[in-house]
Design a protein around this nucleic acid. Structure first.
Lengths: 258, 258
DNA sequence: AGGGCCGACTTATCTGATAAGTTGGGGAGT
DNA sequence: ACTCCCCAACTTATCAGATAAGTCGGCCCT
């Protein structure tokens, strides 16, 4: 069996009572509780652990900080689906304290998505391929709509936004298609952090050097290789696409000024 | 500038007082405090935010859960260097709830370390190369010591342990040598989770199919390629090494019945 | 100068109390 | 019989005040 002694790392003797309780709760949550389930009430837990309600409260607050439960007045603590937030503190502090951190992140993203593409080529399911198709079609439609809007001198921004949404959707679908949930998780966490740090996908950096048609073509190349089951080609196509994007971002930054 | 509006995601209106305080503290910590610095005392914070000490306490406990500060009786809260613990909850729950998760993780690790090798080949510093050298030498010595111990019928386990420690040290040095801190961070986080989940590196799975000499040779190949600055070769050498390791682990699991 | 003790500061936890949400069920009305 | 509203029980959020216990710098004694 795989599920055996996966007990935690930090604080074995667990200096404080609150920490002990928190550890015990983590243990039961990770051990045998599903997202959506509720913890016992604070009063019950207090009785159970033979500590005051205050101590329980602090323990539960630690879990909330850790992203394991959701708290709301009047309701019991609810076990939460883990998400990328765990990591974003690290990423935010990295970016803040050093501009170079952003490029570390982009570099990682390139590597991660190259992996996604390779894995997807190896084992994408039919359903996953359809998601990728759908995103591609969305991008093509949005690009066309954008061109119409420009030609007719209408506001092209909504079409642009839709284009970038489908762009992101393609990358997400690919991460899912990779069949590796840790990769998908990391990708999501990173792209959230990046997107919320700056409004990257909105700034039309795709336009700087690459047209929408270029982007569509690049994605199509990835999708073709994935469908053909050609790992290496899929990886290389994705790497090339992202390296171009990175170049665009770099030039954007050097233009605007860091 | 890069350091601008990187404000957080979760809870904008921040339902509870404790959460508001926590958010504000996160903001100042991530904004302009360095690891090792202390927060004001609970009493001061209580006055400053015009809430009771309890509320401050809960906020600080959330930060502790989030891994941003360290708490100890008698001392003020100290800002912590962020580490990999942030996402180990996710990883642990992944492994627990599904044996396949472990292989997702290993697969990610392979990709990540392949990246490390490539990046290191591109830009390893002289100091980084020396760390790699040192780890290699440690492995060679430990392997030799191990052979002596076996030949003389002494207990070989300490030498074995040392060998695996240097093995890990090599991989860590490579992650550092990659010059990409996010990659290094992720690697650390993952290898901690893996190691503490099972005592992987201890179970002598290197012996199952690969001898210590094989391992040394594999590492040497990586190091040579890194020193030569050959990205592709470094990446491939690492991928090959880890793929072999993965095979060993898989066979170990199928033998034991995981 | 050095070592140990002490007091100021600070956190950890308890008790008891109040305000303010959530929720399920009972009763009124149709 | 069905719906809707409202209340009572439960539960969390926060406050106040108090005690135990740990840390740390400085003073005193040698």
């Amino acid at each position: 069996m795989v599920n055996q002694e996966l007990t935690d790392r930090r604080e074995e003797p667990a200096g404080t009572a609150a920490s002990s309780v928190a550890d015990a709760l983590v243990e039961t949550i990770l051990g045998h509780m599903s997202p959506g389930a509720s913890l016992p009430s604070e009063a019950d837990l207090a009785a159970q652990f033979a500590v005051s309600r205050l101590t329980i409260r602090e323990a539960v607050k630690m879990l909330e900080g850790r992203g394991l439960v959701e708290l709301a007045r009047g309701r019991r603590a609810v076990v939460r689906e883990p998400d990328g937030a765990a990591f974003s503190d690290f990423i935010v502090s990295l970016i803040r304290n050093d501009p170079k951190g952003l490029f570390d992140l982009i570099e990682l993203r390139i590597g991660l998505e190259t992996m996604s593409a390779r894995f997807a080529a190896r084992r994408a399911s039919r359903a996953a391929l359809q998601s990728l198709e759908a995103a591609m079609q969305g991008m093509r439609d949005a690009a066309e709509e954008y061109n119409f809007a420009v030609a007719e001198n209408r506001d092209a921004e909504p079409a642009d936004r839709r284009f970038h949404d489908f762009d992101l959707q393609f990358h997400e679908a690919l991460a899912t298609a990779s069949g590796n949930r840790v990769v998908a998780f990391l990708f999501e966490a990173m792209s959230n952090s990046l997107r919320e740090s700056f409004s990257m996908s909105r700034r039309g950096q795709t336009m700087r050097g690459s047209t929408r048609e270029d982007t569509v073509a690049a994605h199509q190349a990835v999708l073709d290789a994935v469908r053909a089951g050609n790992e290496r080609a899929a990886g290389e196509a994705m790497r090339k696409h992202l390296t171009d994007t990175e170049r665009d971002i770099r030039s954007h930054f050097s233009t605007v000024g860091g």
